[in-house]
Write a protein that binds this DNA or RNA. Structure first.
Length: 477
RNA sequence: GGGGGAAUGGGCCAACCUGGUAUGCUGUCAGCUUUGGGAGCUGAUGAUCUGAGUUCAAAUCUCAGUUCCCCCA
C-alpha cells in the first residue's frame, strides 16, 4: 500500500480505509460507520477528557436527543445560526407530530430549559454539567470522515455562574483543560484564539477556540468555549436571587470538545507514510507480540509468547498476533494501525535469551533481556510520548508567520499556515476586510491570539484605517 | 451554491465507444506446502444501482430516478 503524507487528502482517505477506522458505505451522505479501531481510541480519548472535565468540577448528565421546536426557537441568534442545518423529526409512526422535534445540533436549548427549573439561588451556583453524546448537523460544506460529518461525537459542558467574572474565569479554565488533555496527553499542538465578532457561535457574546493545523496547512477547529453572557439565561429565564433578594440572570459558558474531530487531528498530526502512529496512552493495543516460528518451533515460541504476554498484560494492553499470516505481513499491518510497541519473539531470541522490542514512531529496534523488559517498555512508552509531542510541536512552531503586506499574505499562508496580520478591528464592521482576504486567498480570519497583548502600529492589512489589533489568518477545514 | 466523476461478486477493477458466453486481482472457505519485513500451488465461493424504453438480444444505447465520492466557492 502506497502512502504519501505530502499528498494529505489522498493520504487521509487511504489511511482511514486501510487502518479500518471508518466505513463510508453506509449510504447516507455525511454519515459514516465508526469502526472498532477508531472507537477504541476515541473511548480512551473520552476517558482522559472526561477525567479532566470532572476534575474541574463538572458532573455528568444525559439529555434527550430530541429538542422541541419551541425550545430551539427561544434565542434568536441561535435560531438563525443553527436552524438551516437541523434534522427534524416530524412524524411518530404514521401520524404527523403536533410539534416537530429537532435532532439536537447542540444542546444549549435542551439543557437550559431544565436549568431554568434547577437554579434558584446562590446555593445552586456554579452549575457545571457535561454530557457525552452525538449531535446531528446537516452540513453544507464538504464532508470528510472524522473531520466533518453530519453526525459526530463530542462532550459538551454547560455552566452557569453568578457573575460575569466567574464566567470569564471558566473560559481560562477551559483553555487549561484543552492544554492539559489535547496538547499534553494527545500531543496535538494548537493555538487558542478569540474569534472575531462575525465568526462567533450563534447566540454567544464571544467564542474562544483552539485551532490546530492539518499537514496541508489548513486550520482545524478543535474545542471551542463560548462566553454566552446572559443571552440564553434571559431567553430561558435562568435566574437566581442575590444577597438582596433580587432576581439576577446567570452568566453562562459552554465548552465543546468534539472527540471525533480531535481524533482526525490525532491521525493527521502523528501519522506517517507507514500508517497511523498512536500515542502510547491512546492505543487500543499498546504492545503487539509477533511470534516467529517454523512448524517444529511453533509450540515452543507460542508458549514463550503466552508466558510473556500474560506478565505484560497486567500492565499494558497486549495483543499476541498468532494468526497464520507471515511476520512481514503482521509488521506492516500493525504499523498501519499505529501500535506503539512491537515485540518480536522467535527461536533465535529464545536461544539468545532476549526479545526484540521495536518502536513504531522511530522504527528503532532494541534487543532486550526479559529481566529488563518491563523497565525498557516503560522507558520506551515515555520516550514515545515525548517524541510525538516534540515532533508535533516542532512542526507546528514553523507554521506561524507574520506579515503586514497583503500581497505577501498568500505566500506566507502557503508556506506556513497561520499568519499574523494587523487588522482594523475584530468587530462586525471589520468583516469587509476579512472578506477581502477570503476573496483573494480563500483564507479566513481565525481571530486574536488569546492572552496576547501585542499592539500593532500602522494600517490594517486590508483597508486604510489604523490597525488596532493583530489577527491570525489561515485556510480552514 | 458551482463543477466533475462513479455505481459490475465482500473489496478493487475489465468489458461500454462498436449490443451477443461478464475479465483479472484481492478477500472468504477447504487442502497441501510455508513463516526473521506484505508467501506459493490446487479447488470452491460469489456481481452488472432502480424503473421504463429501443431490440431477436442490454452491463453496454435512450429517458427518468436514486445514491455516493472528489474538487471549487
Amino acid at each position: 500500500m502506497k502512502l504519501d503524507k505530502s499528498d494529505f487528502s489522498e493520504w487521509y482517505n487511504t489511511i482511514t480505509k486501510e487502518a479500518e477506522l471508518c466505513d463510508l458505505r453506509y449510504g447516507i451522505k455525511g454519515f459514516v460507520v465508526f469502526m472498532p479501531w477508531a472507537v477504541m481510541t476515541m473511548n480512551r480519548m473520552y476517558t482522559l477528557m472526561e477525567k479532566e472535565v470532572e476534575d474541574k468540577g463538572h458532573v455528568p448528565a444525559l439529555f434527550p436527543a430530541l429538542i422541541p421546536e419551541h425550545y430551539l426557537m427561544k434565542e434568536s441568534d441561535h435560531v438563525e445560526g443553527f436552524v438551516p442545518e437541523v434534522f427534524w423529526v416530524t412524524k411518530a409512526g404514521v401520524n404527523e407530530l403536533e410539534e416537530k422535534y429537532a435532532m439536537r445540533p447542540t444542546s444549549e436549548t435542551a439543557m437550559y430549559s431544565m436549568y431554568a427549573l434547577w437554579v434558584h439561588g446562590l446555593k445552586d451556583l456554579p452549575l457545571k454539567i457535561y454530557q457525552r453524546c452525538q449531535v446531528w448537523r446537516h452540513e453544507t460544506k464538504a464532508t470528510k470522515p472524522f473531520i466533518r460529518s453530519r453526525e459526530f461525537y463530542w462532550i459538551e459542558a454547560h455552566n452557569c455562574f453568578a457573575t460575569r467574572k466567574d464566567a470569564l474565569k471558566q473560559v481560562r479554565e477551559d483553555m487549561e483543560m484543552t492544554e492539559e488533555v489535547i496538547h499534553k496527553q494527545y500531543c496535538i499542538p494548537f493555538l487558542f484564539f478569540k474569534r472575531p465578532q462575525w465568526d462567533k457561535f450563534a447566540g454567544a457574546e464571544n467564542t474562544y477556540a483552539a485551532d490546530t493545523l492539518m499537514p496541508d496547512g489548513r486550520a482545524l477547529q478543535l474545542p471551542s468555549t463560548h462566553m454566552l453572557g446572559q443571552n440564553f439565561s434571559k431567553a430561558f429565564d435562568i435566574k437566581y436571587k442575590d444577597e438582596n433578594g433580587e432576581d439576577q440572570y446567570v452568566w453562562q459558558t459552554c465548552y465543546g470538545p468534539a472527540i471525533s474531530r480531535i481524533y482526525a487531528a490525532l491521525i493527521a498530526t502523528h501519522g506517517d507514510d507507514k500508517g497511523l502512529v498512536l500515542p502510547f496512552d491512546l492505543a487500543p493495543v499498546q504492545i503487539v507480540m509477533v511470534p516467529i516460528y517454523r512448524d517444529e518451533t511453533k509450540a515452543t515460541v507460542l508458549k514463550e509468547c503466552k508466558k510473556l504476554g500474560k506478565k505484560l498484560s497486567k500492565l499494558y494492553t497486549v495483543k499476541l498476533d498468532d494468526s497464520d499470516n507471515t511476520p512481514g505481513f503482521k509488521f506492516n499491518q500493525w504499523e498501519m494501525k499505529g501500535v506503539p510497541l512491537r515485540i518480536e519473539l522467535g527461536p533465535r531470541d529464545i536461544e539468545e535469551g532476549t526479545v526484540m522490542l521495536v518502536r513504531r514512531d522511530t522504527g528503532e529496534k532494541l534487543k532486550v533481556k526479559p529481566a529488563d523488559l518491563k523497565k525498557k517498555i516503560k522507558e520506551a512508552a515515555k520516550a514515545i510520548r515525548a517524541n510525538l509531542k516534540q515532533n508535533a510541536d516542532k512542526w507546528f512552531a514553523d507554521k506561524l508567520s507574520f506579515t503586514e503586506n497583503i500581497d505577501d499574505l498568500g505566500n506566507k499562508i502557503d508556506m506556513h499556515g497561520f499568519v499574523r496580520v494587523p487588522f482594523c478591528s475584530d468587530k462586525v464592521e471589520a468583516k469587509a476586510c476579512a472578506d477581502i482576504i477570503k476573496e483573494k486567498y480563500h483564507a479566513n480570519v481565525r481571530g486574536a491570539l488569546f492572552g496576547s497583548t501585542d499592539k500593532p502600529h500602522g494600517k490594517c492589512i486590508a483597508c486604510e484605517k489604523d490597525a488596532t489589533i493583530y489577527l491570525y489568518v489561515a485556510r480552514q477545514y
